[in-house]
Design a protein around this nucleic acid. Structure first.
Lengths: 215, 215
DNA sequence: CTTGCATGTTATCATTGATAACATCATTTT
DNA sequence: AAAATGATGTTATCAATGATAACATGCAAG
């Protein structure tokens, strides 16, 4: 439990915590599932770590800085899972597009509050460099493998011509992103009527299956 | 500004407000755009209406009751717009499916914080009857006109067979809902990279166009 | 050794949701 | 008409939270 310190067991042995920053982040992540992005308390986190409430502000400018770090972690966590899933799919010669879609949903449904934190702009510092990097990493994955389903299978030629003309996101990739993102959010917020929690995934997968060949 | 009262201009003329409940709701809705669903303050609303902070709790059990009323209003507001758009489309002999999709998006993008409040389950009382009714009204519209695009145009037979087998929402309607909902949320949270605010709608429409014939 | 910086601590604030005890007016009951 | 009753507001008062200022402590560099 004791972090790396130089000297021994005097009463002030824990004066300098050693790794308070990440300890606080961990404490915040621990209350996240129950309290939600807006409900987490820095003071509670500080108390949990065994430190005064003001100590947090030596490591974070304000609460937004904390939440930005949490969001960056979440972005990277999801990106990791998506890359792993994509690699696996490549090996198995199955659709990487489907794989990252599933990974997106899995992450969102298994860690709903971390997922929501990623998109709670009001809580985040849009200038936080780590967060920006993490966001770019994620959207880059979405972009890279989000277009490798051939829309010509199911969509008209004029639609296919549209498929790449908007911003950094080809329309089809954006549609797919929007669909998983929206369905994940609806599921998390319990907005899909008549669907018990266990059936969620199946119902959503069945809906997503309509998008490409079978997402 | 003076509400309906019985007697004249004595110092206590405004002792009973007359319509404090809706006045408070209006005041809350006014701070909603800037403060967001979690940021609104009952005390501030009470002060704005010119009443003590405790007065609010004579009309609302707690903050969740207030937010539930706001959410119910928003649900009904969106339902109104969707019905109007749907009727218009019926007259013009254009797709009602497309019309309600556009209405959903328009509402979400023009009143983002009211829209978000509708789905902030943490802030809402899931047992609030008015809210439940409003939710049912909205999902009923989504259900009624959400399926009137024939998936057989673009999707495989096996997919079409799946189209109605899940809960109250046929898969296709759920997919469409998820797509508009997700794209709206991504836009509101500024998560779509490289897309200035003015281009949002166009980009999203272009993506949604891939879903049916042209949503 | 001593000076300086990083890191924590102890007050202290303003804001907020919430509750209790009390006041006031309108309406109904006698 | 007088009095009881209930709805509606008011004035304290609480605990929790984010945030800041003033102070303390210990390590590390000169």
């Amino acid at each position: 439990m004791v972090t790396s310190r130089t000297h021994g067991g005097d009463p002030h042995a824990e004066y300098h915590h050693g790794n308070l920053r990440t300890a606080l982040l961990n404490a915040v992540e621990q209350q996240l599932p129950e309290k939600g992005p807006e409900g987490v308390s820095l003071r509670a986190a500080a108390k949990a770590v065994g430190v005064s409430s003001a100590a947090a502000f030596r490591h974070f400018r304000d609460k937004r800085a904390v939440m930005s770090a949490i969001a960056a972690r979440a972005h990277n966590g999801m990106a990791d899972r998506m890359e792993a899933a994509s690699d696996e799919a490549r090996k198995n010669n199955t659709s990487q597009f489907v794989a990252i879609g599933h990974a997106y949903l899995d992450f969102a449904l298994s860690e709903p509050m971390r997922f929501q934190t990623m998109f709670r702009t009001k809580l985040l510092d849009t200038a936080d460099e780590d967060l920006i990097k993490a966001e770019e990493r994620l959207t880059s994955i979405l972009l890279t493998h989000g277009g490798d389903v051939d829309p010509s299978r199911s969509y008209s030629t004029t639609d296919r011509e549209n498929a790449n003309q908007n911003g950094p996101f080809p329309s089809f990739a954006l549609l797919a992103w929007g669909a998983v993102h929206g369905l994940a959010n609806l599921a998390i917020e319990d907005a899909i009527p008549g669907t018990p929690t266990e059936d969620r995934k199946a119902v959503i997968h069945s809906a997503l299956a309509l998008i490409g060949r079978n997402v």
